[in-house]
Amino acid sequence: MAKWLKTTDTITFEVRDRIAWITMNRPEKRNALSWKGLQEIRDALLEADDLTSVHCIVLGGNGRDFCAGWDLTGGESSPVKEQQSIAQNPQSEYRSATATLDDDTWQLQRMNELRLVMFEMHKPVIAKIQGNCLANGTDIAMLADLIVVASDARIGYPPVRAQGSPPSHMWLYYMGPQWAKRMLLTGDLLRGKDAARLGLALESVPAAKLDSHVEALAKRIAAVAPDLLACNKRVVNLGLELMGMKTLQRLASEIDARGHLSAGRMQFRQSIEELGLKEAVRKRDAAFGDGMVEYSWD
């Protein structure tokens, strides 16, 4: 039985068996992210970290997808509630994501601050991935401590084909330099089973068994005292910090902002205006076929 359950506009948050289940809950949008969604995920993670009844957290997505990326139709542009568009009010004291390189970098770094709580919090987080885990969805998943995927899940960052670079960059640490480049130079997708073989995920299981498998793993972790879990999470994460992980996240935001000024991204934005988002994305991806990495393990 659940100890308690609460919902917000974008997530559900349930605690049972010493496990906090935080679930992105916009299935009609394929759990596409927004500023509000990121803030509610951050708040739920911090609350779970604060609850003495919780030993482990599972982050998932309701419906067929974990997260299909950023909600480009949501209309949100800033983490600051009072922000007004500079285009509408040139005298506004608040930043606009499209004003300058520095403003864009600031926005992206604020976004990273919301995500990085998963890395910095004391309790371990498992990302449970089914269906699509794309673009900003990977930015969230790859900051979890453990990633478990359905074998037929699709994981990748297609926006690198026309829009920029991941503002939260963990690809190098999971996959090494060559596979990180392979993924980010093409925007191609990995199936869950291949993501696990390459180290991007801990393991893959058939989609029908994903929920039960993750629950069994979470229960094993939850059987350990939280202070000991924190010790062992932190020592590994401190090792990542010694390898420059946090510095790379700051630089990734700046590099993404730089990419936003590229001719390719400007052409893509013009394509959206002329053709609409769906057709612009189809045109962007047309040269890549189904976009799947076909890798032989024989």
Rank of each mutant, 00 (worst) to 15 (best):
K3R: 15
W4N: 14
K6H: 07
F13H: 15
E14N: 08
R18K: 13
R18S: 06
A20R: 02
P27E: 06
P27Y: 05
N31Y: 07
L33W: 04
G37S: 13
D43H: 08
A44C: 05
L45R: 01
E47R: 05
G60T: 07
G61Q: 02
L72H: 07
G75K: 06
E76T: 10
S85W: 00
S85M: 01
Q91F: 05
Y94L: 11
A97N: 08
A99Q: 14
Q109P: 02
M111N: 07
L116C: 05
F119H: 04
K123S: 01
A141L: 03
M142C: 05
L143E: 03
A144H: 06
L146D: 00
I147K: 06
S151W: 00
Y157M: 11
P159V: 15
V160G: 02
R161N: 04
P166R: 11
P167G: 09
W171H: 13
P177H: 06
W179D: 08
L189G: 06
G192W: 07
V205A: 04
A207R: 08
S212L: 02
A216R: 07
A225Q: 01
C231P: 02
N232H: 08
V235I: 08
G239S: 11
G239R: 14
L242S: 10
M243C: 14
G244T: 11
R250P: 00
A252Y: 05
I255E: 07
H260S: 15
A263C: 13
G264M: 13
M266H: 10
F268R: 12
F268E: 13
F268A: 12
R269A: 15
E279D: 13
K283Y: 06
R284W: 09
R284M: 15
D285I: 15
D298C: 11
